[in-house]
Design a protein around this nucleic acid. Structure first.
Length: 126
DNA sequence: AGCCTTTGACCAGCG
DNA sequence: TCGCTGGTCAAAGGC
């Protein structure tokens, strides 16, 4: 994998739309994803043993939307959401169609407070 | 009936 | 060259 890209990490606690959805599906691992005002379609989930965390892959449902969403977590208390790409439409809740819908994307939300002091690039080796 | 979710397998890139 | 990881797609099931 590479790191160079339009993917950056920004740790900030922005739970203004904190929406919790408890899912007790089955012995699986569902998460509580905050409502972004967009429709996301989950297209994959894998466990990254490299970091010992689960990673979910979401894609914007809009056809003109190439926005992607990635979520990685090791426990329901520590979730890392990472947005990639930009939307081609204003958010459902964002009537403020500010042309800002062209941001390079990328902003992560960190839940919990067990953040490992480090916003570096994944550079670690067991 | 439609939509979304979940799991597995496959592929590609890099070491 | 092979192996491994990460990422994506596909299909099935469930609500």
């Amino acid at each position: 994998m590479s790191e160079a890209s339009s993917t950056r990490e920004t740790s900030m606690e922005t739970d203004q739309e904190g929406r919790e959805e408890q899912d007790t599906d089955r012995g699986g691992q569902r998460l509580v994803l905050p409502e972004d005002g967009h429709g996301w379609k989950k297209y994959g989930q894998k466990f990254i043993k490299k970091i010992g965390k689960f990673r979910s892959y979401f894609k914007c449902q809009k056809q003109n939307c190439v926005a992607k969403k990635r979520v990685e977590w090791s426990n329901p208390d520590y979730i890392r959401i990472w947005y990639e790409g930009s939307h081609n439409h204003a958010s459902s809740t964002q009537g403020t169609s500010s042309s800002a819908a062209n941001q390079d994307s990328l902003y992560a939300q960190v839940f919990g407070s067990d953040q490992p002091a480090a916003s570096r690039t994944h550079h670690q080796d067991a």
